Computed example of a mutant assay.
Amino acid sequence: MVSTLCLLEQWCVDRAAAGQKILGLCAPPGSGKSWLACQLQSNLDVACLSLDDLYWPQPQLQLHQRGLPGSHDLQLLKQVLADFRQHGKAIAPCFAKELAAGAGDRQGQRLLAGKLLLLEGWCVGARGVPALQPYQPVWQQLDGLLLLRPPSLGRVMRWRLQAEAKQRQQGGGALPARLVATMVQSFYQHLPVEQCFAPLWQQPQLPTWQLNLNYKRQPLGFIEAI
């Protein structure tokens, strides 16, 4: 079986060859998108930026529920993407989830450089509710979007719980299971799948691809253009 990483690497190579500069990766919480991005940076000339890195710093982040619309510094994100498109490099903040007792906080900056930039996050490209309207100018800067689709919403909850448990085992701060469940439930309550995500593969507004995953996060087939 071809791994999700191998498929994602080939997709990035193909997109760079087609002249695309900034790509989006939309994947649910706990699906492994951050790990995939880390591997991409090690194996390819690809700069990866997590939407999580654009969370507001503490204490401003406390005014928002982390992960929901409003918790990101969109002006800074737009500037990072614009700088990368113009110069092939940009300075971006780093967000460490283990800080602030698992609530997370910014921790320094890093240089993004490469042939293309991959912006990954759970709501990248999403639309359909008023809270996402301020994000649309950011999504319009993308040259393409890849959707990783889980087998079910119940599996998303399990994946997120597994990710927090792994972070806890590694000695970092992590959210209790109760707060993780609240976070995921709130996520889909504020951003319903049929309203915010289904249109991405039913009526895409930019070049879009999809990859279906099974319950082990393994690919069901290949990346397909929509």
Rank of each mutant, 00 (worst) to 15 (best):
M1S: 14
M1L: 08
V2P: 12
T4Y: 03
L5H: 06
C6E: 13
L8N: 02
Q10A: 08
W11G: 03
W11P: 02
W11H: 12
G19P: 06
Q20C: 01
I22S: 00
L25W: 02
L25N: 02
C26F: 04
C26N: 13
A27T: 06
P28E: 08
P28V: 11
L36C: 12
C38L: 11
C38P: 03
Q39M: 13
N43V: 09
N43I: 08
N43E: 14
L44Q: 15
A47D: 08
C48L: 07
D53Q: 07
P57R: 13
Q58V: 13
H64F: 11
R66L: 11
L68A: 15
L68F: 09
P69I: 10
G70Y: 09
D73L: 09
L74T: 01
K78I: 00
L81N: 01
A82F: 01
D83H: 00
F84A: 01
H87I: 01
H87G: 02
G88V: 00
I91S: 14
I91G: 07
A92P: 02
C94D: 07
K97H: 15
K97W: 05
E98G: 06
E98A: 12
L99I: 09
A101T: 07
G102L: 14
G104Y: 03
G104I: 04
G108Y: 10
Q109E: 15
Q109A: 12
R110P: 06
A113I: 06
G114D: 08
G114C: 11
L116D: 01
L116Q: 03
L118D: 00
L119H: 00
W122R: 06
V124L: 02
V124N: 01
G125F: 02
A126S: 09
R127T: 13
P130K: 08
L132M: 13
P134R: 13
Y135E: 01
Y135V: 01
Q136A: 14
V138E: 01
V138R: 01
Q140I: 06
Q141V: 01
Q141D: 02
P150E: 12
P151I: 06
S152K: 07
L153N: 12
R155P: 04
R158N: 07
R158H: 14
W159K: 04
W159C: 07
L161N: 04
Q162K: 05
Q162P: 03
A165W: 04
K166L: 10
Q167M: 14
Q167N: 07
G172R: 06
G173K: 05
A174K: 03
V180S: 07
V184W: 05
F187W: 09
Q189V: 11
Q189F: 05
L191K: 13
E194N: 14
E194A: 15
Q195G: 11
F197M: 05
Q202P: 02
Q205W: 05
L206H: 04
P207L: 09
W209M: 10
L211D: 05
N212T: 15
L213G: 12
K216C: 13
R217F: 07
R217H: 12
R217W: 07
P219A: 14
L220D: 10
L220R: 15
G221I: 08
F222W: 11
I223W: 06
I223L: 12
I226Q: 08
